[in-house]
């Protein structure tokens, strides 16, 4: 049995069991961490491929709006359909944009992604039907057909679904990273020319990885909208994408567990700092980021991997 998979599963079960007894604020923090972590899972896949997106808020926001608009547009408020809508919309969009973006590298990839996310921001913040800059409220009324509002533990069920979805994403991505194709991501970051001269298509792999990362961001966004109950265009603003990049750098890309650790640290710093000194939480984040860039260029996860270096990867 793969140790990482075992760890992920134990973690998921622990969260589900303890979620029942957790205070409201802890459930909230965990939920946000899981949603952000899922987005960052996709970001580390891109980082492994050698790409940093400064516009992944695009898919985070698209996923959330896809889930949220099911009710006003189609009268649907089943949680499962909301997640499926998010997957569909982000897959189609990223598949289309992927044809363009797969030709870009480095700062140009970052900037073109940024442009696309700001286009969505510009559109949403002016669309009065969708609440402009204020956004609108989202409610999932049923999950697997069970009415959530009538259920005593409706919110707990949403939490369980969030944990389950994150667990599934994390597991699948881990398996993908270990597959022949997944391994090629690192090869591309290292030397594209060689990959082509071994007979594999760099553009195809980048395209596939881009779509995967977009779907993960979309799922993160959808889960976020359902758990928080509110969405607004800010989700597509560049500072949101910046936060994802921040967590990605903080986490490091060596393990699929890292994004969740990074996201948990990030959300904790943000919530506690916001609570106790609302004017300095960004300062704290900025300093943390500089410290990590200087002292832990491989991210927080490298702390762990250094300790257990002798063990299996």
């Amino acid at each position: 049995m793969d140790r990482t998979l075992a760890f992920i599963s134990i973690g998921a079960v622990t969260l589900i069991l303890s979620g029942y007894a957790m205070p409201q604020w802890a459930v909230f923090l965990t939920t946000v961490s899981l949603c952000y972590g899922t987005v960052v899972l996709g970001m580390i896949l891109l980082v492994r491929t050698g790409l940093v997106s400064f516009g992944h808020g695009l898919y985070f926001c698209l996923g959330a709006y896809a889930a949220g608009t099911l009710k006003p547009f189609f009268g649907l408020s089943e949680l499962v359909f909301m997640l499926i809508a998010a997957i569909l919309v982000t897959t189609i969009t990223s598949f289309a944009l992927g044809f363009l973006l797969r030709k870009y590298r480095d700062i140009f990839f970052a900037m073109l992604s940024l442009a696309f996310s700001m286009i969505l921001y510009g559109l949403l913040s002016k669309s009065t039907e969708l609440g402009s800059t204020d956004g609108f409220n989202v409610t999932a009324e049923t999950a697997f057909g069970i009415a959530l509002s009538e259920l005593e533990y409706g919110r707990y069920l949403i939490f369980v679904i969030t944990v389950g979805t994150s667990w599934l994403c994390c597991t699948l991505l881990h398996l993908y990273l270990l597959s022949n194709k997944g391994k090629l991501a690192e090869a591309i970051r290292d030397n594209e020319l060689r990959v082509e001269y071994l007979g594999a298509s760099v553009n195809n792999i980048i395209h596939i990885n881009y779509v995967i990362s977009a779907v993960l961001a979309g799922l993160g966004g959808a889960l976020m909208s359902i758990s928080i109950g509110h969405i607004d265009p800010e989700m597509s603003y560049w500072t949101t994408s910046g936060e994802f990049v921040f967590i990605t750098i903080m986490s490091g890309s060596s393990s699929v567990i890292a994004p969740f650790l990074g996201a948990a640290v990030f959300t904790s710093i943000r919530s506690f700092a916001y609570e106790y000194s609302p004017d300095t939480w960004q300062l704290l984040l900025g300093v943390t980021m500089l410290v990590i860039i200087v002292f832990l260029p491989e991210g927080l996860w490298s702390l762990f991997s250094k300790i257990k270096k002798k063990g299996s990867p």
Binding site: F54, I107, A110, G242, V245, F246, I249, Q282, L283, L285, G286, V287, M289, L290, I293
Partner: peptide, 11 residues
């Protein structure tokens, strides 16, 4: 380097 200036921006 972009990220370093992003951190600086936050600060």
């Amino acid at each position: 380097l972009v990220l370093v200036t992003y951190a600086l921006f936050l600060i």
